[in-house]
Design a protein around this nucleic acid. Sequence first.
DNA 1: CACGAATCCTAGCACCGCTAGACAATCAAG
DNA 2: CTTGATTGTCTAGCGGTGCTAGGATTCGTG
Lengths: 192, 192
Amino acid sequence: MSVQERKQRERAERERLIVATARELAEQQGWDAVTTRRLAERIEYSQPVLYSHFRGKREIIGAVALKGAAELAVAVRAATSAANGPRERVAALARAYLDFAARNPAVYDALFQLDGGLAYAQEDTPQPLKDAFAALLECLGEVAGDGVQPGLFTEVFWASLHGLVTLTRAGRLLPEDAAQRVELLVDRLAVM
Amino acid sequence: MSVQERKQRERAERERLIVATARELAEQQGWDAVTTRRLAERIEYSQPVLYSHFRGKREIIGAVALKGAAELAVAVRAATSAANGPRERVAALARAYLDFAARNPAVYDALFQLDGGLAYAQEDTPQPLKDAFAALLECLGEVAGDGVQPGLFTEVFWASLHGLVTLTRAGRLLPEDAAQRVELLVDRLAVM
DNA sequence: CACGAATCCTAGCACCGCTAGACAATCAAG
DNA sequence: CTTGATTGTCTAGCGGTGCTAGGATTCGTG
């Protein structure tokens, strides 16, 4: 039995290695550089090994995305729980979100830009994704305002943040004014 | 001389054909289906002909994006000029923007999702892109509120719309609530 | 009509995601 | 300890991609 357990452990370890390497490569040189050949070479296995862990490249992207969603949720909760008062809490959330996207562009792309084969907003949505949304909802729900569904408000606020991330990434928005934009967004959208 | 002019006309016509065909193919089957081979076959020329007009696929995407930007500007201006009062004007702008994205998903992708090799927010940004932003600015500038730069406000509003488009496209937001979200966004962000 | 130039296509490169089938290592049974 | 089956891994290759070199062909001109 111990032998099987060891093998299983080694397999899980190698899977982690694949995901971590894919992420690393993507952050270093962009997702275009993450080819199955290069990835296989980096983990010092042959290509087919990747396919014994994942159905294909898309699933590898999905795995990176899930890991990223979990980290995003942690980052958001850490920021919000450290802030005092609704106004500051929402601002902290926004900053944490934008900061995460800026620090992990490839992970952010895996989450929202690329096709990782993940189901969003459905029953079979993976837990980390649901939880990341829940982290936003916990904080944003209290500033939705009267007569506005917390879920709907969270979606709109989230969409705004996502738009800022995308346009900033595309070079459309200068990073210098990021703080101003966040303040504007928080002041206008949130009802205190 | 007339011969050269004719050739030049035919060349320009073929270039329009390439861009239109690429767009059509992308709207029908998605950008992944727009390969240089398929595109060449559809226009009934060989692959290398494409490269006598464009540096590569990316430039073709860019050409589709520019055409789309011009159409977007027209759509936005038409919607805003037909509306009465600042509140209704902004709401009309938002609806027109989201409607354009919904009706021309491939064009919208070419503009903001894919790499079309276009420079944004710089001196050498192509005119259609500048003009599309100008169309937004014309309307949104008047509801920025005191002490808020019109450009900054337009960026934030735009980013919010873009986020809604992206998340809706990804299946993250249910289209049924689109109207509600627009109302929320307009009511909160714009200062009347 | 013949020549030079412009135009276009055939064929091919290196790379992609993905997979079949050969091979080697490992384990259980005799 | 040997055998046989199972598991794991790799080599080699398929059809596709964007892109290009170089030959063939058409075309306008003298």
